[in-house]
Nucleic acid binder design. Structure first.
Lengths: 220, 220
DNA sequence: GCCAGTCTACCGACCGCCCGGTAGGTTGGC
DNA sequence: GCCAACCTACCGGGCGGTCGGTAGACTGGC
């Protein structure tokens, strides 16, 4: 049950009592889609209301405000990243396997639905300071998690002389950029893109004058 | 076109000679800075006017409108990319040297001043359709140039099984992302970042069971 | 040496529009 | 009858952009 509605607990409830969770999920999903396409500031509350078949006032029955909507979407995306990328990766003991898990799972998420994940990185400026601090903190944790993984690879001798921070940022940039060029109806299919990007990411950081002795080398 | 900006190149000459080119350059520079920091839509004409010590009406003596301002900045960034990255790379005959030139020069530009180059990729939806088509076309040419370079490397046998398009996009993403995390006053200095990112980019695409036979290996 | 005319470089005031958000209903299913 | 689920109507404000004006520097004619 992956719905944007799960992010609702972050902003609390609206007016009174129980509201239809499906309806609310649809609102968040549509808002994410439109924010993604036009950008947060260029999107009006009316745009979102129209997309879900409501008037502006009707929409406000479900949401607290535009900025809360944005924060809820970004929190949801961050939750997605935690659950689908970070946690699975954390369960991998081997650093290289962990790195591959991070990149391939993150890339996979983006090919599936990039809206919320892209908003997460592009619309930080639209948040209130406290909310922004929250999201930026979680993003920083993610990058540090990757940097730690690269540091572990370095300690294993599989990486030579690479600054883990630069490495982590670079890999993140590579993966996030997918949302800019990947189209589900394009020439390349998602599996291929995920595999290729993962391969590039691993190649980019590994020391490359030996074969990989990991036993985790089942590609190519 | 008229506003395609003799103003931004302004170290001296103006095509028409009607207005002070220094003043105009300052306006574009400030606008780029603020667009970069707050985003195009979140920036008001008043913000820019205030930053250059003018009223809104005074500012309109120099500019045609907000969207023209954006287009001029993005055209300038694209010109910069052409002159500082693409042209120098085109003069390199060896594909690997060419790739290294592209990545390192692009990365270098971003560490020097990322405003215009970042706006170039983040604010496309703020443009009028014709302007957007213009910029997107030039950006596509850039990516194709990189893809062609990767294809040439593949023909040399230095790259195995990599899709040139995915490779090109991934490298671009890696480089562009620098503007998000690099700070001139941070722990890492520009030389280090440029060198490291270039090294990662090359590693990411090269087949990695041999040393580089290019004779172009003058790092580390 | 002076003044009329001209031009650049601005400003205060204003316009119409649309924005996020709200007050106060109305409706329909239980 | 109640309450979730909407609506119409409206508000203050900020937006991009325009208009009419003007201070002051710079000409050229006499």
């Amino acid at each position: 049950m992956t719905s944007l509605d799960s992010a609702l607990h972050a902003t609390g409830r609206t007016a009174t009592g129980e509201t239809d969770p499906d309806r609310r999920a649809g609102i968040y999903r549509n808002a994410a889609r439109i924010f993604h396409r036009k950008g947060y500031h260029a999107t009006s509350i009316n745009d979102i209301a129209a997309a879900v078949g409501l008037t502006k006032a009707g929409l406000y029955y479900y949401i607290k405000g535009k900025q809360d909507l944005l924060f809820a979407i970004m929190s949801f995306a961050m939750d997605q990243l935690d659950a689908q990328v970070i946690e699975p990766a954390r369960r991998e003991q081997d650093p290289q396997a962990r790195l591959e898990t991070i990149v391939s799972r993150h890339a996979r998420l983006i090919t599936q639905d990039s809206s919320a994940l892209t908003i997460l990185v592009n619309e930080l400026e639209g948040l209130l300071p406290d909310d922004r601090a929250d999201i930026i903190g979680r993003q920083r944790d993610y990058v540090e998690f990757i940097a730690d993984t690269l540091a572990a690879l370095r300690d294993e001798g599989k990486v030579l002389g690479l600054d883990p921070t630069i490495g982590a940022f670079s890999l993140v940039g590579m993966v996030l950029w997918i949302s800019r060029w990947y189209r589900a109806d394009g020439r390349l299919d998602a599996d291929e893109v995920v595999a290729e990007v993962t391969r590039m990411a691993v190649s980019a950081v590994l020391t490359h004058n030996e074969g990989s002795p990991t036993g985790k080398e089942n590609r190519e």
